[in-house]
Amino acid sequence: MVTEKILTIGGSDILSGGGIQADLATYANYNLYAFMALTSIVTVKEDNFFVNSVDTKILKDQLESLENIEVSAIKIGLLPNKQILDLTADFLKNKNAPIILDPVIVFKENNDYEVSEIRDLFIEKLLPQATVITPNLIEAEILSNHKIKNMSDMKEVAKILYSFGPKNLVIKGGNRLEQDKAIDLFYDGEEFKILEKAILIKNNYGAGCTFASSIASNIAKGVDVYDSVRNAKEFVFQAIKNSNEYGVVQNYEC
Protein backbone atom coordinates (compact mmCIF):
# COMPACT_ATOMS: atom_id res chain seq x y z
CA MET A 1 0.00 0.00 0.00
CA VAL A 2 1.34 3.43 -1.01
CA THR A 3 1.56 5.78 1.98
CA GLU A 4 4.34 8.28 1.22
CA LYS A 5 4.34 10.91 -1.50
CA ILE A 6 7.46 12.20 -3.25
CA LEU A 7 8.18 14.98 -5.74
CA THR A 8 10.75 15.06 -8.52
CA ILE A 9 11.71 18.22 -10.42
CA GLY A 10 13.85 17.54 -13.46
CA GLY A 11 14.16 16.81 -17.14
CA SER A 12 12.64 14.15 -19.38
CA ASP A 13 15.07 11.71 -21.01
CA ILE A 14 13.75 10.46 -24.35
CA LEU A 15 15.82 7.26 -23.96
CA SER A 16 14.27 6.66 -20.50
CA GLY A 17 17.56 5.70 -18.88
CA GLY A 18 17.90 8.86 -16.80
CA GLY A 19 15.92 11.94 -15.85
CA ILE A 20 12.40 11.77 -14.51
CA GLN A 21 11.86 8.40 -16.21
CA ALA A 22 14.57 6.90 -13.99
CA ASP A 23 13.13 8.72 -10.98
CA LEU A 24 9.61 7.42 -11.52
CA ALA A 25 10.83 3.86 -12.09
CA THR A 26 12.79 4.06 -8.83
CA TYR A 27 9.84 5.46 -6.87
CA ALA A 28 7.66 2.65 -8.18
CA ASN A 29 10.18 0.14 -6.81
CA TYR A 30 9.86 1.78 -3.39
CA ASN A 31 6.06 1.87 -3.60
CA LEU A 32 5.90 5.67 -3.44
CA TYR A 33 3.30 7.94 -5.02
CA ALA A 34 5.20 10.39 -7.22
CA PHE A 35 4.48 13.92 -8.37
CA MET A 36 6.65 15.63 -10.98
CA ALA A 37 7.43 19.01 -12.48
CA LEU A 38 9.14 18.98 -15.87
CA THR A 39 12.05 21.39 -16.51
CA SER A 40 13.20 20.20 -19.93
CA ILE A 41 12.87 17.60 -22.66
CA VAL A 42 16.02 15.90 -23.89
CA THR A 43 16.04 14.68 -27.49
CA VAL A 44 18.63 12.68 -29.42
CA LYS A 45 19.46 13.00 -33.13
CA GLU A 46 22.39 11.43 -34.95
CA ASP A 47 24.20 10.58 -31.72
CA ASN A 48 23.87 14.16 -30.39
CA PHE A 49 21.62 15.13 -27.51
CA PHE A 50 19.73 18.38 -27.13
CA VAL A 51 18.30 19.88 -23.93
CA ASN A 52 15.07 21.75 -24.68
CA SER A 53 14.06 23.87 -21.71
CA VAL A 54 10.38 24.23 -20.91
CA ASP A 55 8.94 27.71 -20.97
CA THR A 56 9.40 29.36 -17.57
CA LYS A 57 5.68 30.15 -17.31
CA ILE A 58 4.88 26.46 -17.82
CA LEU A 59 7.28 25.47 -15.03
CA LYS A 60 5.86 28.22 -12.81
CA ASP A 61 2.35 26.90 -13.41
CA GLN A 62 3.47 23.35 -12.62
CA LEU A 63 5.08 24.41 -9.35
CA GLU A 64 2.04 26.46 -8.36
CA SER A 65 -0.10 23.37 -8.95
CA LEU A 66 2.05 21.52 -6.42
CA GLU A 67 2.26 24.23 -3.75
CA ASN A 68 -0.29 22.73 -1.37
CA ILE A 69 0.72 19.08 -1.76
CA GLU A 70 2.65 17.68 1.20
CA VAL A 71 5.45 15.30 0.24
CA SER A 72 7.96 13.28 2.26
CA ALA A 73 10.95 14.19 0.05
CA ILE A 74 11.84 16.26 -2.99
CA LYS A 75 14.45 15.21 -5.55
CA ILE A 76 15.94 17.85 -7.86
CA GLY A 77 17.52 16.87 -11.17
CA LEU A 78 18.30 18.83 -14.33
CA LEU A 79 17.76 22.60 -14.07
CA PRO A 80 18.91 23.75 -17.52
CA ASN A 81 19.08 27.52 -17.08
CA LYS A 82 19.17 30.21 -14.42
CA GLN A 83 15.51 31.18 -14.79
CA ILE A 84 14.40 27.62 -14.08
CA LEU A 85 16.89 27.36 -11.24
CA ASP A 86 15.53 30.57 -9.70
CA LEU A 87 11.92 29.35 -9.91
CA THR A 88 12.85 26.02 -8.34
CA ALA A 89 14.84 27.62 -5.51
CA ASP A 90 11.95 29.95 -4.65
CA PHE A 91 9.47 27.05 -4.68
CA LEU A 92 11.64 25.01 -2.30
CA LYS A 93 11.67 27.79 0.32
CA ASN A 94 8.02 27.08 1.05
CA LYS A 95 8.26 23.27 1.21
CA ASN A 96 8.91 21.51 4.49
CA ALA A 97 10.52 18.34 3.15
CA PRO A 98 14.04 16.89 2.80
CA ILE A 99 15.65 17.99 -0.46
CA ILE A 100 17.91 15.67 -2.42
CA LEU A 101 19.83 17.68 -5.00
CA ASP A 102 21.62 16.08 -7.93
CA PRO A 103 23.48 19.15 -9.27
CA VAL A 104 23.48 18.43 -13.00
CA ILE A 105 25.36 21.43 -14.39
CA VAL A 106 27.53 19.99 -17.17
CA PHE A 107 26.07 19.46 -20.62
CA LYS A 108 27.09 20.63 -24.06
CA GLU A 109 24.51 23.40 -24.46
CA ASN A 110 26.25 25.46 -21.76
CA ASN A 111 29.11 27.76 -22.58
CA ASP A 112 31.74 28.57 -19.96
CA TYR A 113 29.94 31.72 -18.81
CA GLU A 114 26.63 29.90 -18.36
CA VAL A 115 28.29 27.11 -16.37
CA SER A 116 29.90 29.71 -14.10
CA GLU A 117 26.60 31.55 -13.68
CA ILE A 118 24.67 28.35 -12.88
CA ARG A 119 27.45 27.29 -10.47
CA ASP A 120 27.10 30.54 -8.55
CA LEU A 121 23.32 30.18 -8.36
CA PHE A 122 23.61 26.60 -7.09
CA ILE A 123 25.94 27.77 -4.33
CA GLU A 124 23.80 30.78 -3.41
CA LYS A 125 20.28 29.41 -3.70
CA LEU A 126 20.15 25.61 -3.73
CA LEU A 127 23.01 24.09 -1.75
CA PRO A 128 21.97 25.85 1.49
CA GLN A 129 18.49 24.27 1.20
CA ALA A 130 19.70 20.73 0.47
CA THR A 131 19.51 17.79 2.84
CA VAL A 132 21.85 15.83 0.55
CA ILE A 133 23.74 16.75 -2.62
CA THR A 134 25.08 14.08 -4.98
CA PRO A 135 27.63 15.63 -7.40
CA ASN A 136 29.83 13.47 -9.59
CA LEU A 137 33.54 14.31 -9.76
CA ILE A 138 33.20 16.86 -12.55
CA GLU A 139 30.30 18.63 -10.84
CA ALA A 140 32.16 18.59 -7.52
CA GLU A 141 35.21 20.13 -9.20
CA ILE A 142 33.14 22.88 -10.82
CA LEU A 143 31.23 23.70 -7.63
CA SER A 144 34.37 23.77 -5.48
CA ASN A 145 36.72 25.19 -8.13
CA HIS A 146 39.25 22.48 -7.15
CA LYS A 147 40.58 19.47 -9.05
CA ILE A 148 40.16 15.94 -7.70
CA LYS A 149 42.96 13.47 -8.40
CA ASN A 150 42.85 11.25 -5.32
CA MET A 151 40.92 10.56 -2.12
CA SER A 152 42.70 13.35 -0.26
CA ASP A 153 41.48 15.85 -2.87
CA MET A 154 38.01 14.34 -2.66
CA LYS A 155 37.89 14.97 1.09
CA GLU A 156 39.10 18.55 0.73
CA VAL A 157 36.45 19.23 -1.91
CA ALA A 158 33.82 17.65 0.35
CA LYS A 159 34.73 20.15 3.07
CA ILE A 160 34.42 23.03 0.62
CA LEU A 161 31.03 21.83 -0.62
CA TYR A 162 29.82 21.34 2.95
CA SER A 163 30.77 24.95 3.73
CA PHE A 164 28.21 26.06 1.12
CA GLY A 165 25.37 24.82 3.32
CA PRO A 166 24.13 21.32 2.49
CA LYS A 167 23.56 19.14 5.54
CA ASN A 168 25.14 16.07 3.89
CA LEU A 169 26.85 15.24 0.62
CA VAL A 170 28.02 12.32 -1.49
CA ILE A 171 30.70 12.79 -4.12
CA LYS A 172 30.28 10.08 -6.75
CA GLY A 173 33.79 9.03 -7.67
CA GLY A 174 33.01 6.48 -10.35
CA ASN A 175 36.14 4.55 -11.28
CA ARG A 176 38.54 7.48 -11.56
CA LEU A 177 40.36 6.52 -8.34
CA GLU A 178 40.40 2.76 -8.98
CA GLN A 179 39.58 1.16 -12.31
CA ASP A 180 37.76 -1.85 -10.87
CA LYS A 181 35.77 -0.08 -8.13
CA ALA A 182 33.10 2.59 -7.95
CA ILE A 183 34.14 4.69 -4.96
CA ASP A 184 31.88 7.34 -3.42
CA LEU A 185 32.57 9.61 -0.47
CA PHE A 186 29.91 10.56 2.10
CA TYR A 187 30.38 13.55 4.40
CA ASP A 188 28.08 14.98 7.06
CA GLY A 189 30.37 17.72 8.36
CA GLU A 190 31.86 15.47 11.03
CA GLU A 191 32.83 12.12 9.52
CA PHE A 192 33.93 10.80 6.13
CA LYS A 193 32.57 7.43 5.01
CA ILE A 194 33.74 5.62 1.90
CA LEU A 195 31.36 3.42 -0.09
CA GLU A 196 32.73 0.92 -2.59
CA LYS A 197 31.24 -1.46 -5.13
CA ALA A 198 32.68 -3.37 -8.06
CA ILE A 199 32.39 -1.61 -11.43
CA LEU A 200 29.63 -2.96 -13.66
CA ILE A 201 29.99 -2.02 -17.31
CA LYS A 202 26.55 -2.88 -18.70
CA ASN A 203 23.46 -0.66 -18.58
CA ASN A 204 24.92 2.00 -16.27
CA TYR A 205 23.39 4.93 -18.15
CA GLY A 206 21.23 6.92 -15.72
CA ALA A 207 22.90 5.43 -12.65
CA GLY A 208 23.43 8.89 -11.12
CA CYS A 209 19.76 9.82 -11.47
CA THR A 210 18.70 6.50 -9.99
CA PHE A 211 21.17 6.85 -7.13
CA ALA A 212 19.76 10.25 -6.11
CA SER A 213 16.14 9.16 -6.48
CA SER A 214 16.86 6.03 -4.43
CA ILE A 215 18.33 8.20 -1.67
CA ALA A 216 15.21 10.36 -1.83
CA SER A 217 12.99 7.27 -1.66
CA ASN A 218 14.75 5.94 1.43
CA ILE A 219 14.55 9.31 3.17
CA ALA A 220 10.85 9.59 2.25
CA LYS A 221 10.34 6.30 4.08
CA GLY A 222 12.04 7.57 7.22
CA VAL A 223 15.49 6.02 6.80
CA ASP A 224 18.35 8.15 8.14
CA VAL A 225 20.56 9.90 5.62
CA TYR A 226 23.69 7.74 5.68
CA ASP A 227 21.72 4.49 5.57
CA SER A 228 19.70 5.98 2.72
CA VAL A 229 22.92 6.60 0.80
CA ARG A 230 24.27 3.13 1.56
CA ASN A 231 20.96 1.52 0.56
CA ALA A 232 20.90 3.56 -2.66
CA LYS A 233 24.37 2.41 -3.67
CA GLU A 234 23.32 -1.20 -3.18
CA PHE A 235 20.07 -0.57 -5.04
CA VAL A 236 21.89 0.84 -8.09
CA PHE A 237 24.45 -1.97 -8.04
CA GLN A 238 21.77 -4.65 -7.92
CA ALA A 239 19.61 -2.89 -10.52
CA ILE A 240 22.50 -2.83 -13.00
CA LYS A 241 23.56 -6.38 -12.15
CA ASN A 242 20.03 -7.74 -12.64
CA SER A 243 19.13 -5.78 -15.76
CA ASN A 244 18.58 -7.37 -19.17
CA GLU A 245 19.97 -6.17 -22.52
CA TYR A 246 17.37 -3.38 -22.63
CA GLY A 247 18.27 -2.08 -19.18
CA VAL A 248 15.07 -3.42 -17.63
CA VAL A 249 15.54 -4.72 -14.10
CA GLN A 250 14.65 -8.37 -13.57
CA ASN A 251 14.13 -10.35 -10.40
CA TYR A 252 15.19 -7.64 -7.99
CA GLU A 253 13.24 -5.64 -5.44
CA CYS A 254 14.51 -2.98 -3.05
Rank of each mutant, 00 (worst) to 15 (best):
C209A: 08
N251P: 04
Y113H: 12
Y113L: 08
G189A: 00
I160F: 10
G222W: 12
Y30T: 00
Q238C: 02
F235N: 10
V104I: 15
T39S: 10
T8W: 12
A232L: 04
N242Q: 12
P98Q: 10
P103R: 03
N48S: 08
L78M: 15
T26W: 12
I160K: 15
K155D: 02
K202Q: 15
K193T: 09
G206A: 03
D188H: 08
V236A: 07
K172A: 11
G11W: 07
A140G: 06
G247A: 00
F186E: 05
I194H: 09
N110G: 00
E4I: 00
I160H: 07
S214I: 03
K159M: 02
Y252C: 10
G10N: 05
K93D: 06
T210M: 14
V44Y: 15
I123Q: 03
E178G: 01
Y113I: 03
G77D: 06
L177D: 05
E178D: 13
K221H: 05
Y246A: 00
I14E: 03
F91G: 02
L101V: 13
G208P: 05
F235V: 02
A220Y: 01
F91S: 02
E109R: 13
I138W: 03
K147S: 15
D180Q: 14
I41D: 00
F91Q: 01
G189P: 04
D47T: 12
I84K: 08
I138V: 12
M154Y: 13
V229G: 07
V157M: 12
Y30K: 02
K233H: 04
D112H: 11
T3M: 13
I99S: 07
D86P: 02
N251Y: 14
G10S: 07
L161V: 01
I138R: 12
D112A: 10
Q129A: 06
G208W: 04
E234M: 07
V236P: 12
Q250N: 15
G222S: 05
L169A: 06
G206C: 05
L161R: 10
F49K: 09
A37K: 08
N94E: 13
V170N: 12
A207K: 06
G174Q: 13
M36Q: 15
D153W: 12
I183G: 14
E234V: 03
P103S: 01
Y30W: 09
Y252Q: 11
E139I: 04
I118M: 13
V104W: 06
S144A: 15
E64C: 04
Y246T: 00
F35V: 00
V229P: 12
V229Y: 11
L169I: 07
M36Y: 14
D227M: 11
I123K: 13
L137E: 03
A73G: 05
L101P: 11
F107C: 06
V54N: 11
T88Q: 09
G165E: 05
G165T: 03
S214E: 07
N110T: 01
I183K: 15
S214P: 11
S116Q: 15
D112M: 09
F91Y: 15
I14Y: 02
D102E: 06
V157G: 13
I105W: 04
R176C: 00
K45I: 00
